[in-house]
């Protein structure tokens, strides 16, 4: 029979030094191979789609870049270009944006829920958790490697989508500060993906079953997102209160996007609150017959009504992104810690 080529291990009085982390590189790759191949593959396929249609959208926008935005001020040719843009490019862009909102939880649940739960479902934890490389360290390594990979992929994907949807910012059909769009950009998209992944892994460990964990991840994620929207407006990026004219009128090209308006109120001459019925009449008048050169604000000002806004300027976009990504990251780390704690505690 076969002969041993190594001497037997000597008796030890103290614990052996922990195995180096890099030992987990190949096991994680091999065990998560399906996820680590399919997620990039799907993202790559979608990216090709975004690339192709993004080029079309950019091309169509380039054609009408000099057309005024208000319908009343458009010439025949411009009107036709706009109509084409609004009927083909915008619906596509809109749908993509909605799907982008779901992407983090789809990726996260798909990659996160089975990460640890599959071992429990299959019974292979009886093998894995009795190896020399302890179970908590295995979990940490897997979570870190897969999580980091997903975050990087998500970040790249968000950048691509930002390019794809850029023209819609100029046509003011999308604003980066609005809830749904803010989530698909910058650091927040990868942060949400990471958190969704962490939720999936945690719930997988909690329920010990993949499918219920995936379903629950969806629910928890949606609740989290709603919570994020509610909290977003309260960030200590100072909102500005002022009566500056935020809109220059329809006639001129403008910056991509407009501020996030939190409150609006009107004052009359002398700073006293304006007469509501007067304001309403003026608003109705402007809506039915918008002035080509003057904005609503200026029009009201001419009638003695000052429009006041409490708003978040566009320049606050990145600070808000950092704050949100920051607490999402902290949340993800807390979930990872909780997951590892569950691994430590959960018994056969």
């Amino acid at each position: 029979m076969t002969v041993r080529t190594m001497p037997a291990q000597p008796a030890q009085d103290t614990a052996p030094p922990p195995l180096p982390w890099r030992r987990m590189a190949w096991p994680t790759w091999r065990q998560q191979r399906a996820t680590l191949i399919s997620v990039p593959a799907v993202l790559a396929a979608v990216s090709i789609f975004l690339l192709i249609f993004g080029l079309k959208i950019h091309h169509d926008y380039a054609a009408l870049v000099n057309c005024p935005l208000n319908p009343g001020g458009q010439s025949g040719a411009c009107a036709k270009l706009f109509s084409n843009f609004n009927s083909t490019d915008w619906p596509l862009g809109n749908i993509c944006a909605i799907l982008m909102g779901l992407a983090p939880v789809l990726i996260g649940a798909f990659a996160g829920a089975p990460l640890l739960a599959r071992e429990l479902e299959n019974g292979t934890f009886r093998y894995a958790w009795t190896q020399g490389f302890g179970r908590e360290r295995q979990a940490i390594a897997k979570l870190a490697l897969v999580g980091a990979t997903l975050a990087v992929l998500a970040g790249a994907f968000a950048a691509l989508f930002a390019w794809f949807s850029q023209p819609f910012l100029y046509t003011e059909q999308m604003n980066v500060l609005t809830e749904t769009v803010f989530d698909t950009r910058g650091l927040v998209f990868p942060a949400f993906t990471l958190v969704a992944f962490a939720i999936g892994a945690f719930l997988g460990m909690l329920f010990r079953r993949i499918i219920p964990a995936m379903a629950a991840t969806l629910g928890v994620y949606l609740a989290l997102r709603l919570g994020a929207w509610a909290v977003r407006g309260q960030y200590p990026v100072t909102a500005v209160t002022g009566n500056a004219d935020l809109f220059n009128g329809y006639g001129t090209p403008r910056l991509p996007g407009f501020p996030w308006i939190l409150n609006t109120w009107y004052t009359g001459p002398g700073g006293k609150p304006a007469n509501q019925s007067v304001v309403s009449k003026l608003l109705d008048q402007y809506q039915s017959n918008p002035h080509p050169k003057l904005s609503l604000t200026r029009t009201l000002a001419q009638q003695g009504v000052t429009e006041w806004n409490r708003y978040i300027p566009l320049s606050r976009f990145w600070p808000m992104q950092f704050i949100e990504a920051g607490w999402l990251l902290v949340l993800a780390l807390a979930l990872v810690a909780a997951t590892v704690w569950l691994v430590r505690r959960r018994a056969a």
Binding site: R4, M6, Q9, R23, W26, P27, R30, Q131, G132, Q138
Partner: peptide, 14 residues
Amino acid sequence: HLTRNLNQGFDTPF
């Protein structure tokens, strides 16, 4: 390969 990575000593030839 997996078991070798996860343990201090592993007699692969054996």
